[in-house]
Design a protein around this nucleic acid. Structure first.
Ligand SMILES: [Mn+2]
Ligand SMILES: [Mn+2]
Ligand SMILES: [Mn+2]
Ligand SMILES: [Mn+2]
Lengths: 149, 149
DNA sequence: ACAAAGATGTAGCCATGTCTACATTTTTGC
DNA sequence: GCAAAAATGTAGACATGGCTACATCTTTGT
């Protein structure tokens, strides 16, 4: 192809950006499970003093081997530690993630409610939405909420 | 355990609802890929007259075997049809999904911008957020936007 | 018409995340 | 202290969604 641009068509210019967006969304999604488990384990520890595999599984709505595998991934990624037949604990990194994720979750729920989403729908949808809220978007949400005191 | 409620703890009441939310988010996520491919194939057909595997792959930012597998799933779910070495076409069901998904995507982007999210961040984040926006939330978004002329 | 280039198909690898089934360990209740 | 119950571990199946490598078909250019 010696003429590299034989009528680009309306799509060619937008293509790379769109592909990048899809790719970005896939990456965000791959973090979602880690974020949810981390936040939830932190919740369990705060509220019950420990996070057992059974509790984690029940809270996530999965079977216990699924929870075990998820915790294995958390450990592999340096977010949690655990020893056989003992509870799961967050590393410092994990605790920081839990902190950050909890705050973002709350802001997302509040934002949804602030624009008129019914509370129950806000709670449900936020659980998925939160993982795709970037730092820039989070900041905008916070500013919007602030301007409503 | 004869005493089935030996101090419920603050968490037990909230547990089932939370598990249900996580479960709901997982289900929504399993639809995300179908929605994105369907919308995007419809875009390609509108703008270039057809949707070839290579174009689909490039637009999604994946390799062509990945696109082929995704299209196989679309066909299996009754959203698309295709024949070897020919383009991909949407069924009536697929076209309806594309229509719905396109509208929701636009509303999500507009809502994000309306609450102050920078346009580029809105475009990026919407690609992931959209799949977790329920009918109730979408309606609220539309109402909010309406009340802004 | 035909060779080269491009598009598509297909096989098979890997990682993730779900499950069921079964084994083992720990905790509980008496 | 010990048997039963509960919790945890582990194996292995299945589905999904990425990828590379290679085979085959179609389109293009001369
Ligand atoms: Mn979540
Ligand atoms: Mn959350
Ligand atoms: Mn999307
Ligand atoms: Mn979209």
């Amino acid at each position: 192809m010696l003429t590299p641009d034989p009528d680009p068509g309306p799509l060619d210019a937008v293509e790379p950006a769109q592909a990048e967006r899809f790719s970005h969304a896939r990456t965000a999604q791959s973090q979602a499970l880690l974020e949810d488990y981390t936040e939830m384990i932190d919740d369990l520890i705060r509220e019950t003093g420990e996070a057992r595999i059974t509790d984690i599984a029940r809270q996530m709505g999965v079977t216990h081997p699924t929870a075990t595998k998820a915790v294995a991934r958390l450990k592999r990624e340096g977010l949690a530690v655990s020893r056989p037949y003992r509870g799961v604990f967050l590393t410092e990194t994990g605790a920081e993630m839990a902190e950050r994720v909890r705050g973002r979750h709350r802001v997302v729920v509040d934002l949804l409610i602030a624009v008129g989403v019914p509370a129950e729908a806000a709670e449900i949808d936020a659980e998925g939405i939160e993982h795709h809220v970037s730092a820039a978007t989070l900041r905008a949400f916070e500013d919007f909420l602030k301007g409503r005191g």
